[in-house]
Design a protein around this nucleic acid. Structure first.
Lengths: 100, 100
DNA sequence: ACAACATATGAATATAACATCATATGAAAT
DNA sequence: ATTTCATATGATGTTATATTCATATGTTGT
């Protein structure tokens, strides 16, 4: 599929692993190992997905010794999550009950 | 992948065909044939994708004779689009230049 | 009842996205 | 310089998702 900014952005939220990463960073920044443990996925998978999130500026990274600390771009992410949460509460009581 | 409300919701925006449908409905409601012509896709493809959008309540449908008129759930969609547009303008000058 | 139009559906195929595994890189400590 | 820890990367196989095509359904008008 053609890769656009919009496409990539939403794909990050659609993917369950990356969505879990986003959620894991809501409270505070974490390094890769901590994220992996928190979401229960292996390091390599986490790294691959962190890269995609960073590419879209959904998260930011800063180095600290041999660690890399990832943090959420809260300015965008939190409002988006709030909107969707509200939408799902209003409309999607049973949206995920039956596959589509 | 496990199907959740979040997952399905964002997948709709990530897909370029469905994103085009959403955009086609911003001005005013349209029937299936009109949407198909506006986005330049064939009727069957449009229908399949309309179904997914409707399933997530991103669009709504009302019948009018043999036509089905689809309209946007503007309450959710417009704010989401605005947030992402702003994010992309701020951060993604070159996000879609290189694949990921 | 039949034709014409509008739209939906199912199944098969094609494509895109994802996970995995093995390995590489990089940074600190010894 | 070598080991260890933290993380990234590339290639391959797998799975999820999308498109396509043929056909079905439903609605209106004759």
């Amino acid at each position: 599929m053609k890769s656009t900014s919009y496409h990539n952005f939403f794909l990050n939220f659609a993917n369950t692993t990356r969505f879990a990463i986003i959620m894991s960073l809501i409270d505070k920044p974490l390094n890769v190992t901590e994220i992996s443990e928190k979401i229960g996925e292996e390091q390599s998978k986490t790294s691959h997905n962190l890269k995609k999130l960073e590419h879209c500026h959904i998260i930011e990274m800063k180095k600290k010794g041999k660690q890399r600390i990832y943090s959420l771009n809260a300015e965008t992410v939190i409002p988006v999550l709030n909107l969707i949460e509200k939408h799902i509460k209003n409309h999607c009581k049973k949206c995920d009950k039956h596959e589509i």
